[in-house]
Design a protein around this nucleic acid. Sequence first.
RNA 1: UGGCCCGUCGUCUAAUGGCAGGACACCGGUCUUUGGAACCGGCGGUGGUGGUUCGAAUCCACCCGGGCCAACCA
Length: 779
Amino acid sequence: MNEPKSPSSPGTDFIRQVVKADVASARYGGRVITRFPPEPNGYLHVGHAMGICLNFGIAKEFGGCCHLRYDDTNPDTERKEYVEAIQEDIRWLGFDWGQHLYFASDYFERMYECGEVLIKKGLAYVDSQATEVIREGRGTVTESGVPSPYRNRSSEENLDLFRGMRAGEFGDGEHVLRGKIDMASPNMLMRDPVFYRIRHASHYRRGDDWCIYPLYDYAHCLEDAFEGVTHSICTLEFDNNRELYNWVLENVGFEEPRPHQYEWAGLDLENAVLSKRKIAPLVEGGFVSGWDDPRLATLAAYRRRGIPPEAIRLLSEIVGVSKTGAQTEATKLDFAIRRILNQSAPRVMAVLDPIRVVIANYPKGKTEEFEAPYYPHDVPLEGSRTVPFSHELWIERADFLEHPPKGFRRLMPGGEVRLRYAYVIRCDEVIKDDAGRILEVRCTYDPDTRGGSTSDGRKVKGTIQWVSVPHGVAAEARLFDHLFFREVGEDQDSGAIGDCLNPDSLTVISDMKIEPSILTDPENTRYQFERTGYFWRDPIDGCGDQLVFNRIVSLKDAWAKRDTKPSPNKVKAKRPTQAYSRTNPEASKQPRIPSGGEQDAEALARMLRYTGELGIGAEQAEILAQSLEWSSYFESALTVYPDAAALATWIANDLRGLLAGRSPADLPFTGESIGELASLVEDGGVSRRAAKDVLARLIIEGGDPKDLVDSMGLRKVTDTHELSSVVKSVIDQWEEKAAEYRAGKSGLLGFFVGEVMKKTGGAADPEAAKSLLQDRLDN
RNA sequence: UGGCCCGUCGUCUAAUGGCAGGACACCGGUCUUUGGAACCGGCGGUGGUGGUUCGAAUCCACCCGGGCCAACCA
């Protein structure tokens, strides 16, 4: 009962679709191997947790495995302490890497050998320029780089130098190994990237075995390949690195099926500091108590705060997987935590900010006990404890108001409130000190309401929690809020960090009261303090006799929210629209005329011919004319079928859309085929819609369009009789939809056409089907 | 201003040429010995302009907006 609702379409994100397709096509023999590759230079945070859920989740769902591999290629920053902490976090989250624990540093020898392979192929060289010179030589995003003077060293010399680098013959920074790729590449990463650097430093695992260390782009893809990883999933910012990932693997000699990289957006959580680079100064600067300070978004902090791992996994489901760089609202995390805890946390009574209530008509010194269930009626768990009641009680200061606003349902002078599981009391008198601060509230109880229900049927709207003064236990509570009230910039020093800090991020309540039953519970019990929030004992400071409770998350509070309600006539803030920003609407229609150069002159001539003589629109003409590849493809289609405008659409719009960036040279069919296809459509033998299906097939396996039309059963069905019967059966099948359509939901017509198309395997003439459908539906 | 990636309710995410759907948030209601939970209902979206198509969130073009890339970090 009350299973957490699944988010929409679970498990159908674009990465899982790729994996699913690869399993179906047996691309890797059905194997699925993912990996989670942390660098042991800090603690994991919720962002990493999403990556862990993704990688381990996919492996589990597809019967594969997920490797835990430390990407420990930088001796300066990595420590054993972190590798242990990371493992603890992953286990806590509920994932298991089994035997598959790996370290990049174990591959140093193999990686080195790959370096020699590249050198021998003439694809890598030792550069001896200074760091700054290399940097400058790389150019900028708008200017290409200049080749290093060492770029053309012989393989022998490179090999000799590289071996010398390894042997420790050189100092830090004297040489590097670079890939010999393309100094003019628009992708900066391809401008002869550095593969190895000299660093005389002790590595936390390899000690002084090595004095050269591989860099990420070189190392990471090799690690994946060594381990037989199939799907290497990383975040969006590595998009540019994919080209290099592929280059290294292909040139070192890893053939298909080899690992491939896929990028997703990762998690950006509102109010959470999600970068090790930004967390470290908070820890080191003493702004927080450590990597596990509960205000942080590290997994260690979440664990300490008391967030259950199930909630993190639920968050991962809720947030989903996409390539949209987006920020997730903090309320989604809160929701996930409450969703889990509501179903599992025993309820107890605690008072965070106590005021004293004296029950005047309850005998001093008398105590009675109430049996109180741990769980509310809608949580299917059993259990109860007894709570002691007496002459003096603590209640929450906020639960008594001398001058309450309208709608206040708690205690007020002359009013009644129910003490949960106990009695209904009425407030008779308020005792204040000289400063007007309330010292105690004097009440009388109604003995006929034992257990909380009235015998005369009168309604008591409010119910509040309470703690008996002589029995209550004192404790400390810690409430957490987000650490910053303002975004901290990228390179800010600790002074600037201090300026952004939320002074109320930690509230310590030193004198809360709680019912004594908790004294006999396991220390790691997560409670709901009724009407207040979810709490558990701080695992560090709340052990043994120390009663220190962390608030994991508050309860939703509909009453408190009433003040912050946005006014109904508030103008809705809209994303600024760009509707008016274009100054010349015709501008986009003007083809850009290529300028200068012999090739451009030819392209221009083609362009003019296409728009003039052939009557093609400027947009498509530009696409087709610009490259020789496309223009010759187009013109060969033209030899088969003379309707240039139709062909231009087929090629410029449909074909290129299906090709997703690939070139016509890769196609298993020629321009003539597409011309033939277009003529089949013109003849009426195939609908345009069916022809597009044929095109898609053509791209995959080539073939003769006419044969494909037949073998796919796509010869157009125009026969009115045949079509009518399909139309009738579709309408009969979807009676309700038909009624909706008749009631005015005209958008449903497309749905019906789609159904007819489905039923006929795509062969129906959609236009004919549409008019038949309309006729039938309209009467 | 070079290349690449991304724009769907306030937020996150489905729809893979055929009904724009779900979740969170918000609002209202029912119920309630937690102003919790649950249940019911409501609000609300394809960045813009053209084009292709019987039919476009989806294909094409341009524009606008956001992000990433010039470490011997990962």
